[in-house]
Design a protein around this nucleic acid. Sequence first.
DNA 1: TCTTCCTTTGACTTTGTTTGACTTTTATAT
DNA 2: ATATAAAAGTCAAACAAAGTCAAAGGAAGA
Lengths: 141, 141
Amino acid sequence: MKKSLADRIEQYIKVLIARSEENQIIIQRLELAETFCCVPSQVTYVIGTRFTEKTGYSTESRRGGKGYIRISMMDDEEISSDLSKRELIVFIDKLLAAKLLSKNEEELIKNIILHSSQNMSSDQRIQLYNSIRFALDDFIR
Amino acid sequence: MKKSLADRIEQYIKVLIARSEENQIIIQRLELAETFCCVPSQVTYVIGTRFTEKTGYSTESRRGGKGYIRISMMDDEEISSDLSKRELIVFIDKLLAAKLLSKNEEELIKNIILHSSQNMSSDQRIQLYNSIRFALDDFIR
DNA sequence: TCTTCCTTTGACTTTGTTTGACTTTTATAT
DNA sequence: ATATAAAAGTCAAACAAAGTCAAAGGAAGA
């Protein structure tokens, strides 16, 4: 199956990260773009769609001379899991405030979140929260 | 009895799957349509009528450039997670019928169930369904 | 024949990717 | 300090798929 450019760049970056010591790499956007014979913003696109907090990565960059982009796998998953949980709860509270969810619905979901958190690995939790978040987005639309 | 186009496409896909390593194939809708000299949505129709969860297949696709459709035969784990999903849905329907859940609540939860199926392993799914089940028990009490 | 269900088709929608022109930030040389 | 050059960021347009939906067609049974 033919992979898209974005997919190939994604894979490439992931291999680099896997090979790295600290689960993080520092690249130069232009350099990577040249490796793949594409425009630099393609790299930005890949990072923006595939290396997000949602997918367990964090990035940091600097412009100008000696600029760079650092991509790291979030290591303390526990923290990020709690983070996305807090975010999700905040989000649900907002929905409640905006009357997009009833009090009952809000309680129901929080109940699910609470119960689900029990027996899941942090990894699973992140995915669950994302799914619920997604489902809510979908639901209120 | 003359075979319909849909039947022939179905056969074709099944042969491809049978020949594949992982009991799954990745196709491009347009390509397959061209192979059979038909409109792309014909392929969608075949997949929608012959390669469903009920018949033991799961599918996944991506639009846009280099898009694809993946069709896989569900393994035992997937089948059982699908089964627990059905059971859960039956349960939710009962709650709705018993007026223990509102229509909105029912939809919301089904939404979560639906979305969660997307990015989780069947293992995770079963856990999630159990959690939802617990949360519901708790909620209606 | 009539009805019903399945199939076929195509116009339109949505989603995801690629590209490039333009902007902003930063280090370095003057 | 200032100017310059070397990065990365932004954004929207063009393109490339797959999805949706409803209408039209066709076959098989009552």
